[in-house]
């Protein structure tokens, strides 16, 4: 599977409070969350993003609260993939569990610019910056995560297990 889109670039330590501020957590409706996604660091994000676009950030993306609302908000906003130097661990878990694609790749995170056109292949882990022509290789997913993804997410994985 591969995705292609325009890049929204952010810095290090993007926390879940700016991805989706707590004042909006009184509803877990994905549409409501997406409407406020990133508003505290990038007020125009919601109006500019279109389906398939890609988010690129620095280290420790998604640090802070355990709110699953954060990866849901990003996914629902239309973002098809988040590439970061590294992810905070609860965000990493949540993204996988809710089916938001993520890739860890320090080189891509450093080199890709805001607004670039980028293409990424989940199976090979290859990320290509179409605008600059550069290619990068992301760390492949660990085996167990592949198994969860194959099952269609943690819910299906748990279902399969409890039936087994």
């Amino acid at each position: 599977m591969s995705v292609k889109g325009r890049v929204f670039k952010y810095g290090n330590d993007v926390d879940t409070d700016v991805i989706i501020p707590a004042r909006h957590l009184t509803s877990a409706d994905p549409k409501h969350l997406a409407a406020h996604c990133m508003e505290d660091i990038d007020a125009s994000f919601v109006s500019r993003v279109s389906a398939g676009d890609i988010m690129v950030a620095g280290s420790n993306f998604g640090c802070g609260s355990s709110r699953e609302h954060a990866p849901i908000a990003i996914k629902e906003s239309g973002i098809s993939l988040v590439i970061a130097e590294s992810f905070a661990r609860i965000f990493y878990r949540n993204a996988i569990n809710v089916g938001l694609a993520i890739m860890e790749c320090p080189e891509a995170s450093a080199a890709i610019n805001d607004g670039d056109e980028v293409e990424a292949d989940f199976d090979s882990g290859v990320i290509r910056d179409i605008t600059t022509g550069e290619t990068f290789e992301a760390k492949p997913f660990p085996e167990f995560i592949k198994r969860i993804i194959e099952a269609g997410g943690l819910v299906q994985y748990t279902k399969l297990k409890s039936e087994a």
């Binding site: 609260s65 609860i90 997410g153 819910v155 409890s162």
Partner: peptide, 28 residues
């Protein structure tokens, strides 16, 4: 809740997860 790690003070292993993890753990 990300601050579930608080209980490490008691010599326990405690860590925060998300809602889907919670749901699955409530079942299994």
């Amino acid at each position: 809740d990300s601050h579930t790690c608080t209980y490490g003070a008691l010599g326990a292993f405690a860590t925060g997860v998300g809602s889907t993890d919670l749901a699955c753990a409530m079942v299994s």
